[in-house]
């Protein structure tokens, strides 16, 4: 625990230095504040996406390439309900979360479970196949037409000299609340304890009478529900199209590796760090894609600290 706190402190110092550098480089406090605010708000959503990934990664040991496609499914559920039934986009959480939970449960039970204990390549390829299937089914059904879901009551808010739309703030608050809920579920409930037991030692867990197969399916479903919720929360901010979730999937991987495999606090911290990296990186390297910096950080973390900032050495 002390190590975690000291690491968090170190991360905060590094973040402060990076922000100061960005300030000096851009020469404008407002620009920097705006980048920090936008980065943190988006980082909250990254954290929720990564939380689902890290749960699946940590408990089932699966690199889930379908996570982004599940998120896209959540976006489409929201976009369709909001445009056809005129629902408030945030209310559609009541649909997208159970829907994706069910989809995740079925996919794990009938497909992913059959590759458990198999080669890493088999699981990676299976989830890749599921992602391709989902994305292109959406493309076939709704064609490539992009949709946007405006929030009728959206309004710009002023925060410390920077401006953020209410929809962005809501996405952040929603994502952080859900992340907190997952954290409570994992640490304060019997189900959470059982899931952590399965993650720590599947064989031992099954010896003491836990239904490992069911817990695997529930974990995958919970992770997928996180993706669905994230999909709904970002729908007002993005253009909804069949490949909209891909980028979040990739960034999710970066966050998971950065935060440490299977670490929930790591996912939150990593999400915020990557959100900041993306926005501040744009200030350091104007004219380049902000993602270039994100991938640069990713490769450095992979090479020097593959267990992540908050993970234990393997």
């Amino acid at each position: 625990m002390n190590r975690t706190i000291s690491r968090a402190g170190l991360a905060a110092v590094v973040a402060a230095a990076v922000i100061a550098g960005a300030w000096a480089r851009s020469g404008s406090g407002t620009v920097t504040a705006q980048a920090v605010l936008t980065g943190l708000l988006l980082g909250g959503v990254y954290a929720l996406v990564a939380m689902g990934l890290t749960l699946i990664f940590g408990v089932l040991d699966i690199v889930n390439f379908a996570h982004g496609a599940f998120m896209t499914l959540g976006m489409y559920a929201t976009a369709l309900l909001a445009s056809s039934a005129g629902l408030n986009p945030y209310l559609t959480l009541l649909v997208s979360v159970p829907l994706l939970f069910g989809v995740g449960y079925v996919v794990q039970r009938h497909m992913v479970s059959r590759t458990m204990g198999g080669s890493l390549a088999a699981q990676l390829l299976l989830t890749l196949g599921i992602a391709m299937l989902l994305e292109n089914s959406l493309l076939l059904a709704f064609s490539g037409d992009t949709r946007t879901v405006p929030v009728s009551f959206d309004t710009p808010l002023r925060v410390l000299g920077a401006v953020a739309d209410l929809s962005r703030v809501l996405a952040f608050v929603g994502a952080m609340s859900l992340a907190g809920a997952v954290w409570l579920l994992l640490t304060r409930t019997r189900l959470g304890t059982a899931i952590r037991a399965v993650a720590a030692n599947p064989e031992g867990a099954s010896l003491v009478g836990l239904d490992v197969r069911r817990l695997h399916a529930l974990t995958f479903a919970a992770g997928t529900a996180c993706a669905g919720a994230a999909g709904t929360l970002v729908t007002p901010l993005v253009t909804v199209e069949p490949t909209a979730g891909e980028l979040f999937n990739i960034i999710g991987f970066v966050v998971v590796v950065l935060g440490g495999l299977g670490s929930v606090p790591g996912a939150v911290a990593g999400g915020l760090i990557i959100g900041l990296t993306e926005q501040l990186g744009g200030l350091y390297l104007p004219g380049q894609s902000p993602l270039l910096v994100v991938f640069g950080v990713f490769v450095l973390v992979l090479l020097w600290r593959p267990q992540g900032l908050f993970g234990r050495p393997a």
Binding site: S119, A122, G129, M132, L138, L139
Partner: peptide, 21 residues
């Protein structure tokens, strides 16, 4: 419509991974 070709690839990929590794 587009997307059908990749759907075919995807189904084939899933079947191969699950049924004939």
């Amino acid at each position: 419509r587009s997307g059908l070709d990749v759907i075919m690839y995807a189904v084939l990929l899933i079947v191969v991974v699950l049924a004939m590794p």
